[in-house]
Computed example of a mutant assay.
Amino acid sequence: MSLLVHQIGPACTVQDQGRTGYLDQGLSRSGAADQLALHEGAALLGQGPDCAALEMAGMGGMFEATQPVSIALTGAPMQANIDGSPVVWNASHTLEAGQRLTVGAVMQGTYGYLHAKGGIDAPLFLGSRATHLTAKVGRAVQAGDMLPTRPHADNVNMKLQPDERFAGGTLRVVASFQTPLFDQDTLDRFTRTVFRRGARANRMGMQLDSDGVGFAAKGQLNILSEVITPGDIQMTGTGNPFILLPECQTTGGYPRIATVLPCDLPRAAQTPAGGQIRFKFVTMDEAVALHAAYLAELARLRARVEPLVRDPHEIPDLLSYQLIGGMISATE
């Protein structure tokens, strides 16, 4: 009742929605970098979004089913096949016992997700199955591991039109505690600047690069460390912005120029290296309305799921299908 891992890329971890309520003990939320992908996988498999999935950073792996299992693939599109036959991304499929799913390199974006019916049954820790590498909670998945799943073969061959969020774009932000420390000229330049996601990026955060001088706040050396959350944009001593992600530290003293809205964090996390990002300030009232619309869209995901029509050329056992069921004799 599991997926046997034959090959696996680096930094692939089991993730769910993360654990909350432990910031005062120095433990940040962790959880999937792209929370929307969790909801998409849940919709495709007809289950709750609290189920754990495998998060694949840039590269997937090869997985063998030990029992029939329903799977779904969401997030950043990756090359994928079952026993050599290509399969559609952002869709659900059946793995029969002994079949192998191969997930290759990412084609766009950063994080892809492998879901299983019933979720990946990793151990619970403080109410979550999420791996938190920086806190040494769990570890990255390795070749030879068994990913416990439930044997299922229903709710398969479904698809869902993905939300396009894998090439960067505009991130909406609200003012943070230290935003007033940045003068208006600096804030205006911040929103006019086209940033590029730099090479320094992981589940803790991602550095942004830009042309021209960096960004600095007045009196930033006197800022006391205080609580920070995913989405906060810190300005380092070099003037480069860092967008904090699920495994960010719980406190920090760098000035925060703004905070990315939770509904835009999937787009931020999925921006590939070199992808362009811009920022747009919105009011708190606008942010609340945007978040409410995002939650409503999540609730509608299951209604958007539709049957996946397979290409006959990609079905190796085509002759085993009953293709003329329901036909009647012309003489009757």
Rank of each mutant, 00 (worst) to 15 (best):
A167Q: 11
V173Q: 10
L95R: 02
V309I: 09
D211Q: 09
R302D: 08
S320G: 15
L126H: 15
A57G: 00
V103H: 02
G198F: 10
A153L: 10
N155R: 07
G144M: 06
V194D: 03
G214C: 03
D188W: 10
P307Q: 09
I120H: 14
I277S: 13
E247W: 04
L114F: 07
H115Q: 05
Y254H: 08
V227M: 15
G325C: 07
V137F: 09
G41R: 09
A52N: 08
L147M: 01
I82T: 04
D163N: 08
H39Q: 05
T236P: 01
G31Q: 05
A42G: 14
A303Q: 11
A167M: 08
R197S: 04
G84V: 04
G231W: 14
M78R: 14
Q99N: 06
L319K: 03
Q249T: 07
G326Y: 08
I82P: 02
Q67C: 14
E332P: 00
G41S: 04
A52E: 08
A269K: 01
C263A: 11
A122Y: 10
G219A: 11
T66C: 00
E226S: 14
V282G: 15
A175H: 14
Q79L: 10
G60P: 00
G112E: 14
A122G: 05
F182K: 02
F281V: 02
L45Q: 11
L3R: 00
T259Q: 13
S30T: 03
Q79R: 14
Q184F: 10
R189T: 06
P272H: 03
I120M: 13
R278C: 10
I223V: 04
Q178R: 02
E64C: 09
L290Q: 13
L45I: 00
G48M: 12
Q142E: 14
F279H: 13
I120D: 15
T110S: 12
P77W: 09
A296K: 15
E332Q: 08
